[in-house]
Simulated scan of single mutants.
Amino acid sequence: MKFLKTITFIVFLLSVNTIYAQQILKKGFLVACGDDKLFIIDPAKSNDNHTEIVWSWEVKNSEGLPKEYIPLLKSLDDCKPVMNNKKILVTSSSGATIIVNIGNKKVEFYAMTPMAHSADILPKNRIVVANSTHKDGNSIELYDLLKNEKVLFRDTLYSGHGVVWNAKENLLYVLGYKHLKSYELIDWKTENPSLKLVNSWEIPDNSGHDLSRIDDENFLISTHNSVFLFNSKIKSFTPFDLLKDRKDVKSLNYSHKTNSLVYTIAEESWWTENIYMVNPMKTIKLPGLKLYKVRKAI
């Protein structure tokens, strides 16, 4: 009887831990990355004097990651919540892309990706990565979540900085130095999938930096000198009023329903220690961290 009670208690603890793990990254929480660290932040409990960190992860303490990847993850630059907010898709400009399971903090995918700046999940658990200016970069690369390090497809993209999948259109949008492009999925049910270029648009300013999705047909693009709204239905770029003419915006997260905005700006060379919010208006600080991008769980 005592043995059965012990087993029952262990099962109970495991179920509680599973539930807790699923709740770590709630809708509206922020994922921030910089240096070799990831953080999940509760913005509602954060203010100018306090940052409510509910979860953190550091490369050197990770499980499931080959040791040779540690120096390739010293400068994390994008960290997207994926798979129902249970995992984080991470890129590093030092040369790698990984997926971290939030619940157990283990690395579940890894690949060497030169000067990686952004990534996204595509159907059938495939991963697309945008690589920036590097002798082996300037590209988008396609991977399978279950096949570490194996490139399935590659296309050129000068100064790749953004990738966003839009399920409504069944199109992938990618951002480079001077162009926004869209791709369709080809041979997706086979072992040899690829991407086919559908459209390419010249953006209104040089140095395309961040690409984020607002809804089924609206996207935000940051450049060196400003931020623009792109509408995929009418294929147009217009200034984004909340950050019009704002230079060096590194990441953007906007909800048109609440008119709320979360963003980062390069304030010390390419990095910052601050996360800025609009509606509600506040600044969240991560002192001592070379923060690059922040993403909002939806």
Score class of each variant (00 low, 15 high):
F240N: 09
F9V: 13
I98D: 03
T156K: 11
W271R: 10
Y183K: 07
E63K: 15
L286A: 08
I275G: 02
P81Q: 08
D144Y: 13
L145W: 08
V100C: 06
N104W: 07
D187Y: 12
K45L: 05
V31M: 03
K181L: 08
L286S: 07
E141D: 07
L243T: 08
I203V: 11
F230D: 03
L211Y: 05
V249G: 07
E184K: 15
K74W: 05
E68H: 11
H256F: 13
A116K: 00
S200T: 10
F230Q: 03
V227W: 14
S46M: 05
Y177H: 12
W270M: 06
K290R: 14
K290M: 14
A32C: 10
I203T: 06
A44D: 10
V164I: 13
K282Y: 05
V151D: 08
K290G: 08
N61T: 10
N47H: 13
S260C: 01
S207P: 05
T51V: 03
S200M: 11
E108G: 09
L211E: 01
K86S: 15
K5H: 07
K178N: 14
N131P: 01
K26D: 04
V31T: 03
E58S: 14
I214Y: 14
F3V: 04
D155W: 07
L14I: 11
D155K: 12
T51M: 05
D248Y: 03
V90Q: 04
F228P: 04
E141G: 01
N49M: 12
Y254T: 05
H134P: 01
K285C: 00
L220H: 07
A297Q: 03
Y276Q: 09
Y110Q: 04
Y263W: 15
N192T: 11
F29W: 14
M112A: 15
N170A: 10
H50F: 10
Y292A: 03
P280A: 05
H50P: 02
F39Q: 03
G288P: 09
S159D: 15
L73H: 01
K150F: 01
M277P: 04
N148P: 05
G137E: 02
V198A: 09
K147A: 02
L73Q: 00
P114Q: 06
N49S: 13
S269Q: 14
K296S: 04
K189S: 13
K67C: 03
A119Y: 07
D248W: 02
F29G: 00
H256D: 13
G288L: 09
V198E: 15
K67R: 09
N104P: 05
N192K: 15
G95I: 00
I265F: 08
F153C: 03
